[in-house]
Amino acid sequence: MKLILTHEVKGLGSAGEVVTVKDGYGRNYLIPRGYAVAWTKGAQKQIDQIADSRRKRATEDLEAARELREILEAQVIVVAKTAGANGRLFGAVTVADVAKAASDLTGKSVDRRCVNLDSVVKSVGEYTGVVKLHADIAANIKILVEAAK
């Protein structure tokens, strides 16, 4: 049975792919749960159009990620936190703090789940990290932690 997947199915494929499965699996599991629809020539044309638009969007996302990487790597991200007299922070700088500062700096949204710090930040100073902007693009960032005034 030839089906078009509408959702990602683990071990089978991702949305928009045409797959061949056994009749019972398709008829009793995939189609009733909305994971797939029957393959037809008209549906195949729709899939081709969706795939073209995804490729264009992926290219645009890739270009935007490259631009964002250039901005992030060219500048230092400044994070201000409350610190004691000896430079130790009250708490730590989290990836959410870095993501917010990067978003404020660039004007574009940076997800906290994409930020990785090389070390735990618990004192004032300079640190490094990585922001994964796209599957193929990551920005190496410099973070300056200052004592809040």
Rank of each mutant, 00 (worst) to 15 (best):
V121E: 02
T128Q: 15
S53F: 12
V131C: 06
A36T: 06
V79I: 10
V21W: 03
D52A: 15
A64I: 12
I77W: 00
G42C: 07
T59V: 09
R55V: 07
V115R: 01
I71R: 10
R113N: 14
A92D: 11
I50Y: 11
A43D: 05
L72I: 06
E67I: 15
R54Q: 15
L117V: 11
I47E: 03
A64M: 07
A80Q: 11
T20Y: 07
I47R: 00
K41F: 09
I50Q: 11
S119E: 14
G26I: 02
A99D: 05
R88H: 11
A147S: 12
S103W: 04
I31Y: 03
Q75S: 15
L117G: 05
G24V: 07
Y29R: 11
S109Y: 11
L12M: 07
A51K: 15
G13Q: 04
A101S: 15
A51C: 05
E67N: 11
T106L: 04
D52N: 13
S14W: 13
Y29K: 09
G34Q: 10
E126A: 10
L105Q: 04
I143A: 03
A101F: 00
V131F: 00
H7K: 12
A99S: 08
G11E: 08
V9A: 03
L68M: 13
W39C: 04
S119P: 05
D104M: 06
R88G: 05
E60D: 14
E146C: 09
A64G: 14
R113L: 14
L12P: 01
V110Y: 00
R112Y: 10
I137E: 03
V18T: 15
Q75H: 12
T128G: 07
L105C: 06
L3G: 00
W39I: 02
A38L: 13
N116P: 05
H7E: 09
K22A: 15
K2T: 02
V121C: 05
G16S: 05
T94S: 15
E63G: 09
A102T: 08
D61M: 08
K56V: 09
N28W: 01
D48Y: 05
